[in-house]
């Protein structure tokens, strides 16, 4: 099992190079990272780097076009969450792996219908730790409320969860121990955190039908 940070932004999006992020990730106990717009899948300093593409689109047509364009080269396709209708459509579209950014989506952007869609299609919902670490006050409270709601739906519908730091700098990366502590703030149990850290592997190698050999 591989412990993965599901979304980091190396230089030039952030201030830290990919190799340096890998060094720090290794120190913090991570086995793999999903780099947005990284070159290719690689193993750097014993950390597996997976290429992710973050699709930030206003409409579903744009998402479909980007998914078709990127799905051959990218390991993981992440879509930034929008309103309720957009999220339902994105979660139903085959090829999307992760929906992220629910903390900044409008109210009721993720409901029981979206949760059911995510569970049926095996699309993961990302829990981004960046707002918990960097925001203060009402903004952080909104993120915590949103993650509590996602967790409640996850326990009911069993859709996959991923955890990401959204790191743009090595200072934003967090260790597995810290991730467990931070997720406990909104009520996530340690075994749920562990499962969420291993989800990326499962997304890339989904369980197929049983074959008789």
């Amino acid at each position: 099992m591989v412990c993965t940070d599901a979304c980091v932004f190396p230089y030039p999006r952030g201030d830290t190079s990919l190799r340096r992020l890998c060094l720090e990730a290794r120190n913090l106990g991570l086995d793999s990272i999903v780099c947005i717009d990284a070159g290719e899948r690689a193993q750097i300093h014993d950390v597996l780097v997976r290429r992710g593409v973050l699709i930030e689109a206003g409409s579903m047509q744009e998402v479909v076009a980007r998914v078709k364009k990127e799905q051959r080269t990218a390991d993981l396709l992440l879509v930034r969450a929008g309103d309720g209708a957009f999220n339902r459509a994105a979660l139903s579209y085959r090829g999307v792996h992760i929906l992220r950014g629910l903390d900044s989506a409008p109210k009721r952007a993720f409901d029981q219908v979206s949760a059911k869609n995510a569970a049926d299609k095996g699309v993961a919902i990302d829990i981004d730790l960046f707002p918990l670490i960097h925001r203060r006050g009402a903004s952080r409270q909104k993120a915590l409320r949103c993650y509590r709601d996602v967790l409640r739906l996850h326990r009911k519908f069993s859709f996959p969860l991923t955890i990401s730091s959204g790191a743009r700098s090595l200072l934003d990366l967090r260790s597995v121990r810290e991730i467990t502590r931070l997720c406990a703030v909104f009520g996530m149990e340690p075994h749920e955190v562990e499962d969420a850290l291993f989800t990326v592997d499962a997304l890339l190698e989904p369980a197929g039908p049983v074959e008789v050999i």
Partner: peptide, 19 residues
């Protein structure tokens, strides 16, 4: 420990604390 993980700045400089 949880609170220490959320420190992003000290003395006007960007830092991170890892318990």
């Amino acid at each position: 420990e949880t609170a220490l993980s959320t420190i992003t700045e000290a003395e006007g400089e960007r830092v991170a604390l890892h318990p």
